[in-house]
Design a protein around this nucleic acid. Structure first.
Lengths: 225, 225
DNA sequence: CTTGACACAGAACAGGCGTTCGAGTATCAT
DNA sequence: ATGATACTCGAACGCCTGTTCTGTGTCAAG
């Protein structure tokens, strides 16, 4: 009888189990049982699987919910809840107002019209369920370092604190824009994200409708041609 | 005995179960059992829970793995596998070369130094496990519409097709840059993402090291001050 | 050689869990 | 009334599963 002994670190067996848990989870949408791990990793005894599982738990590779069926999961893996779906309500461009989320939008939206964001990506406490996304159309947002096709994720709000990046509708100019917001003595300063560009100033008697606060920008770089 | 009868759509009970499954999953990292659902939704019989679960399955709100313990999950929820972790290997800035991924980097990296990306966000077939991420430092990438602090996700490669956005190291200029790549007759054209800016040309005898292909850019808009 | 840590097997136990069945009750159209 | 439908309960069945215990072979240190 031959046994490969890797005194330290993860042995071949450990890795095999890890891989199997991952692939099984991917395929079945739920973790494998101890016996299933055993079968697919050529371990004939459940106690041996348990033996390795204990080690993998100690080494921090997996987490276990003892006593609970299929209570194994890879650490750092997010069974659910650490990811959420944000509806894409429409497009955002300079010449048009921003689609505002209504309650109906959050009830049911198709996966096609939404983006999934990992919670870990989300800044601070913005993990509310009321976020919405808009797809940038055209190149009118380049001064906000936002490109055509980018997806901006917004938190709906009517007010902003200094330094927030906001999506505003300037009704006097019939223009939508993304800018950093600063309230000054007698006017608002809207600062482009691009530091080489100059701010614009809005008198307080002008209409300035804050539609939302930008919390994230995502750009899928497909191809340029 | 009073019973509220909602002939069509989801009744109060259905919604309660749905909410419970979601919150339980979030808290325990695994789905609840039928009995647990019953307890928390004031249903005294497992068969009644099963009764509602069947309906929720028919209406498409949940999926069930019959015969399997805790085999309930919300539809559209991604238990795992639809998200993956990309290691942040370092920073990228104009004046310094790009950290290149080594095999060791993909073995074990701490969650703190990585970003999680939903598979659904990933363009096309880039879902390989060899992706890596870099954090942009400084404002030298603004011509690529990439800001200080942005995270760029790269696929390591030495060659690129026309139109790809690549991270290149120009050893003659001692400069790292992100540009759209085009190979022309006798030179390379590196086109900035910002359409208002002009391309730079690199003679083929100059050193041009393609370090990776940009597949995504993520910007967490925190605050500007 | 002895000892003990390590890797593994097999069996048995006890509880968890989905399933099923029989039966009861309320609401409503016929 | 009466049947159909929707909803609820309780209990029992039986498999699935994690746990635990005993025992065996390997290998390196003392």
């Amino acid at each position: 009888m031959m046994m490969v002994r890797k005194s330290k670190g993860l042995g071949e067996r450990h890795q095999k189990i890890l891989d199997f848990i991952a692939s099984y989870q991917r395929e079945h949408k739920h973790p494998p049982s101890i016996r299933e791990i055993g079968e697919h990793c050529d371990i004939s005894s459940t106690s041996v699987v348990n033996y390795y599982l204990d080690q993998l738990e100690k080494s921090g590779n997996i987490e276990r919910d003892r006593k609970i069926s299929r209570g194994v999961r890879l650490t750092g893996s997010t069974p659910l809840g650490d990811m959420f779906r944000v509806p894409i309500l429409g497009v955002i461009q300079a010449g048009e107002p921003i689609p505002v989320p209504s309650n109906a939008d959050f009830g049911s939206f198709t996966p096609e019209d939404s983006v999934e964001i990992a919670m870990s990506l989300m800044p601070a406490k913005e993990k509310g369920k009321d976020l919405f996304a808009l797809q940038v159309q055209g190149e009118s947002m380049i001064d906000a370092m936002v490109n055509d096709g980018d997806i901006v994720i917004l938190k709906p709000t009517q007010e902003a604190r200094n330094g927030d990046m906001v999506a505003v509708w300037l009704s006097d100019r019939n223009e939508t824009t993304l800018k950093f917001f600063f309230k000054e003595k007698d006017k608002y300063r809207l600062q482009p994200a691009n530091p080489t560009m100059n701010p614009i100033f809005i008198n307080k008697n002008e209409h300035l409708e804050i539609k939302g606060k930008v919390v994230m920008v995502i750009r899928k770089v497909e191809r340029y041609m």
